[in-house]
Write a protein that binds this DNA or RNA. Structure first.
Length: 491
RNA sequence: GGCUCGUUGGUCAAGCGGUUAAGACACUGGCCUCUCACGCCGGUAUCGCGGGUUCGAUUCCCGCACGAGUCACCA
């Protein structure tokens, strides 16, 4: 049996969005599971859509995701070149071959342009019946032309997809598609078929948007007498539109590029894990897989048919789980790395805190409550500066804190804090109990007041003890004093 | 509009003729707790609709509805 070969064939038109990555991932996994090769081919036949630098985005993305290719433009391989714009002679050669076999013809018609809805019934095949004389004449006069594939006018084409099963389409639905454009470049349809054949691709894996054009490709394979590859069409990934409907994932409906997700603080491995589960489902109830595990588990028969909606909320949860599973030390590294690459205004301060002796303490309170790295700066903002806050948050029914006892608590807290020598968790914890018994309230009441005084927030990562410990004795006292002064001004 | 494909809760989904219709996210009730979070224990579906086939359909068949994809000198 031939070795399995799959390919990822992106166009260098900008960023990689999640749908692209998902295709790449599945293509990679299918190859790996079957001990095959995974190759990258750049499909840049549309010069007008080319975006400089796209290739490096593609390589970077794949690398971050952990997807390694066996052949490609950057690393070469036995079927080089792997960039379509460098393979033009090949397409031209095959174009003239199919022309001479009568499977295609010259077309001198003007560009069709976009016709109004419902009006278009496809190309009218006018040039299909041109005589050889007419053709020669026009060629001699340098009339611009394209080469079109001659489709059968009747009958039915059918093929088997490994995911969707048998699919049939009436040949009359098929248009005489263009193989070579007037600029001499091949269309995607043609280049794709030629290259997949030339590069011995055994399994063509792609999104299901290609399902309805697959018969056209098969007709091409037939015209050349090539064997048709296995098809694996992947269910689409849909995005939620602002109006609540769903449609193919695109920039418009909130889809983001892989890069963007990473820069928001999603872990690449979480993203990979998440998208692997979009349209594929392992046997059991397990949801967490490393790439290596996926390589061993991934089977084609567990790929679904129905499209799935990309739900960021679940990604958020998965990311959260990944972060929680890290050791605190590991988490620190990830955070430091993320912050130093980021644009946060507080970047320097945060790094300082993280790199100081408090890094572990801070990470401990953070890594159980941060869904994505990008949320960290706003969560720990208060460590650097206490913003003005509404005093109402001091008064809490459950803690039994009132306008009467808050100043008392604060006063006692300041006195006792001043005397504290042992600035450790245990030491700090003990002062709250002392204050509590002195004032005659519960520990919880003291801690409530303390925490809000030094943070200005009703909700903080970490409790009073942790925050005291991190900001240090001087800052703590300074903030407690400020809170006391402010509380006196309140009616 | 034609064609193609799809349809299990808001989302991801298991299920492949007989099940109390898994599990996860989200939502939600409670517990825990110095706040939040974590954690723990619960709650939420007449399987799009209508016909068949069958002793029996979420599962098989046919219509309909709805959704998506596709109808480019884009990929």
């Amino acid at each position: 049996m031939l070795p399995i070969r799959t390919r990822f064939a992106p166009s260098p038109t900008g960023f990689m969005h999640i749908g692209n990555l998902r295709s790449a991932l599945f293509e990679y996994l299918i190859a790996k599971f079957l001990n095959g090769k995974f190759i990258i081919r750049i499909e840049d036949t549309d010069r007008s859509r080319y975006v400089a630098g796209s290739e490096s985005v593609i390589y970077k993305t794949l690398k971050l995701a952990g997807i390694k290719h066996d052949e490609g433009p950057d690393i070469g391989g036995p079927y080089a070149p792997y960039v379509q714009s460098q393979r033009r002679e090949i397409y031209l050669k095959y174009a003239s071959e199919i022309l001479s076999k009568g499977g295609a013809y010259y077309c001198f018609c003007e560009k069709e342009g976009h016709s109004a809805e419902g009006e278009s019934h496809g190309y009218n095949r006018k040039c299909r019946i041109l005589s050889q004389d007419e053709i020669n004449q026009k060629l001699m006069k340098n009339v611009p032309y394209v080469i079109r594939q001659k489709m059968p006018l009747e009958g039915v084409s059918f093929f088997k997809d490994m995911v969707f099963g048998e699919i049939s389409i009436k040949n009359e639905e098929l248009e005489d598609q263009i193989l070579i454009k007037s600029d001499g470049f091949p269309t995607y349809n043609f280049a794709n078929v030629v290259d997949d054949h030339e590069m011995n691709i055994t399994h063509v894996v792609r999104g299901s948007e290609y399902l309805s054009s697959t018969p056209k490709y098969n007709l091409l394979y037939d015209a050349f007498g090539w064997s048709i590859p296995n098809y694996i069409h992947l269910p689409l990934i849909l995005g939620k539109n602002p109006d609540g409907t769903t449609s193919k994932l695109s920039k418009r409906n909130g889809s983001v590029s892989f890069q963007e997700l990473v820069s928001q603080g999603f872990l690449p491995e979480a993203i990979v894990n998440f998208i692997a589960l979009l349209g594929w489902n392992p046997k059991g109830e397990r949801e967490f897989f490393t790439l290596e595990e996926l390589e061993k588990e991934f089977t084609i028969d567990r790929i679904g048919k129905s499209p799935s909606v990309f739900d960021v909320k679940k990604l958020l949860w998965m990311n959260f789980e990944y972060m929680k599973s890290k050791s605190v030390e590991n988490f620190v590294e990830i955070v430091e790395n993320f912050i130093s690459n980021g644009q946060s205004l507080k970047k320097n301060e945060i790094i300082k805190v993280l790199q100081g002796t408090n890094r572990l303490k801070l990470s401990k309170i953070l890594h159980q409550r941060v869904e994505k790295l990008g949320d960290i700066p706003e969560k720990i903002d208060f460590l650097f500066e206490v913003k003005d806050f509404n005093f109402e948050i001091f008064y809490n029914k459950k803690s039994k804190t009132t306008p009467e006892n808050v100043p008392k608590i604060l006063l006692a807290l300041i006195e006792i804090t001043k005397k504290l020598k042992d600035w450790s968790y245990a030491g700090i914890r003990s002062i709250f109990s002392q204050v509590a018994s002195e004032v005659g309230v519960k520990d919880a009441a003291v801690m409530w007041v303390a925490r809000i005084s030094v943070s200005g927030l009703a909700v903080t990562p970490g409790g009073a003890v942790e925050i005291f410990e991190i900001i240090g004795k001087d800052q703590t006292l300074q903030r407690l004093e400020a809170a006391l002064q402010a509380s006196k001004l309140k009616p």
